[in-house]
Amino acid sequence: MYVVMVTYTAPVPDVDYALPDHAEWLAKQYEQNHLIASGRRDLHRGEVLIVRPMSRLKLDAMLASDPLSLGHLAAYEVIEFSASRTCHELHAVNELLAR
């Protein structure tokens, strides 16, 4: 599983212009069952993505297809971790990780 810290690297108006395309990209990632959660960081600094387990190569390819990446508007910090405990609502996700 991964936590991806997205940091905007371009002026806010440039990022805002790309956000509708980015929102479509996020929807596609949810449809493909890649994302668990996502949301904006405070002060319009970027976003946080929580990504289901996958190969790092697949994750890198997924992030490279993000309009924010394609437009050189954001940087991505990828943190890989193995969840050993989850809240009740994410129990099914944790069970999948144990397999």
Rank of each mutant, 00 (worst) to 15 (best):
M1N: 09
M1H: 09
M1R: 12
V3E: 07
V4E: 01
V4D: 03
M5D: 00
V6P: 00
V6D: 00
Y8I: 03
A10Y: 03
A10H: 02
A10E: 09
V12I: 07
D14L: 10
D14E: 15
D16V: 13
Y17A: 14
A18E: 12
L19P: 05
P20I: 10
H22E: 06
A23D: 08
L26Q: 08
L26Y: 02
K28L: 13
K28P: 11
Q29E: 13
Q32P: 06
Q32W: 04
L35M: 07
I36H: 06
A37S: 10
G39H: 02
G39W: 03
R41Y: 00
L43I: 02
R45Y: 01
G46Q: 01
V48C: 05
L49W: 04
I50P: 03
I50S: 00
I50G: 04
R52C: 08
S55D: 14
L57A: 12
L57G: 15
L57T: 15
K58E: 14
A61L: 15
A61P: 15
A61H: 15
M62S: 06
L63T: 04
L63K: 12
L63I: 07
S65R: 14
D66L: 04
P67W: 03
H72Q: 13
Y76D: 01
I79G: 00
F81R: 05
S82A: 15
S82F: 09
S82E: 14
T86L: 06
T86E: 07
C87R: 11
E89R: 11
E89I: 09
H91S: 15
N94G: 13
E95Q: 10
L96S: 08
L96Q: 06
A98G: 07
R99W: 01
R99F: 00
